[in-house]
Design a binder for these strands. Structure first.
Lengths: 216, 216
DNA sequence: GGCAATAAATGAGCACGCTCAAAAATGAAC
DNA sequence: GTTCATTTTTGAGCGTGCTCATTTATTGCC
């Protein structure tokens, strides 16, 4: 039976990830050394690189699980019958509140996650694409209910919403927005603009006759 | 007179930046060492750090000038009387075509530029804010001409457009979009969606009566 | 020209992330 | 229990970006 080997490996991986997590939280990603992680995990320094391709990979592994959980939780707690704007705000705000637990670490994560290489990039893409698909689903539902334009491509709308979210997130983590509420407000404003659109709905003031009061 | 000192300094800075540029283009940012740059510039390795705070700073300096020039050129060549969508596409496509000259280096630049620290971050912000202001100006013009919704906040619309651009750029540089034309197409589609908006312009089918034909 | 005072350039040295040949631990066969 | 093959762990060692005490060059003053 090969249970011992497998258990030892699982044990070590868990210890390494736990050590990495606690040190990243204590000191931040940049100020934590792999040697410290190894020491706290009770393994040699080289062993860390058996379980992670590189230091950045440790951070990615640590957040892959957590982010997946946040996605599930965000969609699970989506109040039914809510407006499209509220739904989008709810989803993306969930992420922001998650990152707010440790903005220093969040900066390192977001910075690292955007330009990954090789297998780590694919792993991230396998998390991101289904997520964007679910966001696109929100737009599709709105279309099905006759609340959104039929000619709109749901995936493109989802990408735009995600882009606005990412912008607000980056601005916040870079200190351009002072607080989480400020970032959430910025996000909601941007999403409102996207939903409303820029161009006037009709090219002429005929629109006036469709508003409110009946014809005189 | 203190001309000699100043000239020596200017000379050395120019040599260091030129050496850095040629090596970055030849080998890429990551595979270029500061020692190589120093050698090609004919200075000691430590001297490089007299003129740049760190290696990343070299890349930032190199691109700060070039990007500024691209901004100017993009707005200077903006055809007058063009639609808002075409104007935005023109501006952001200029950047993409610039980055297309060396996508490997572009990746390093974009990656580095997004999360800068301290003075470098302020420098970038002083380049970015006026740019976003000018993009916002395009939306304002459209408003003034009665082509865009009056209740829209131009700066927020500009930020949304920039976010869509950045998303397309990142996707392209990460290999998710296969080519420059694909990235440009993605960008234009995203901008079209933003201009059009998501929500239906009117809550009821009254809209039908405002289209095309006159009343019977 | 000689002489301080100041500014600039230098490179040995440090800590880091990461590699990889060697060593230790484990499992299977008898 | 001994032997051998396979898997896992190890840590010395490498090249890197960057620092900083020391050395070298330049300037203003007499």
């Amino acid at each position: 039976m090969s249970g011992l080997r497998a258990q030892n490996k699982a044990d070590k991986e868990a210890r390494i990830l736990a050590a990495a997590w606690s040190l990243f939280v204590e000191r931040g990603y940049d100020d934590t050394t792999v040697r410290e992680i190894a020491q706290r995990a009770g393994v040699a320094q080289g062993t860390v690189f058996v379980y992670a391709n590189d230091k950045q990979d440790l951070l990615a592994m640590l957040f892959a699980d957590r982010l997946g959980a946040v996605v599930e939780s965000a969609f699970a707690t989506l109040p039914p019958g809510v407006s499209l704007l509220d739904a989008l705000t709810h989803i993306f705000s969930s992420f922001m509140r998650f990152y707010a637990q440790d903005t220093r670490l969040a900066r390192s994560v977001v910075r690292g996650v955007l330009f990954l290489e090789g297998p780590a990039a694919e792993r991230m893409e396998r998390l991101n694409r289904p997520f964007l698909g679910r966001v696109a689903g929100l737009f599709e539902s709105a279309q099905a209910q006759g609340l959104a334009r039929a000619e709109l491509v749901p995936f493109v709308a989802a990408l735009n919403a995600f882009a606005a979210y990412f912008m607000a997130l980056a601005s916040w983590l870079n200190g351009l927005l002072p607080s989480l509420p400020a970032a959430e407000a910025q996000l909601r404003l941007a999403l409102e603009h996207q939903l409303l659109g820029v161009l006037l709905p009709t090219p002429s003031p005929i629109e006036l006759s469709t508003q409110q009061g009946a014809a005189p």
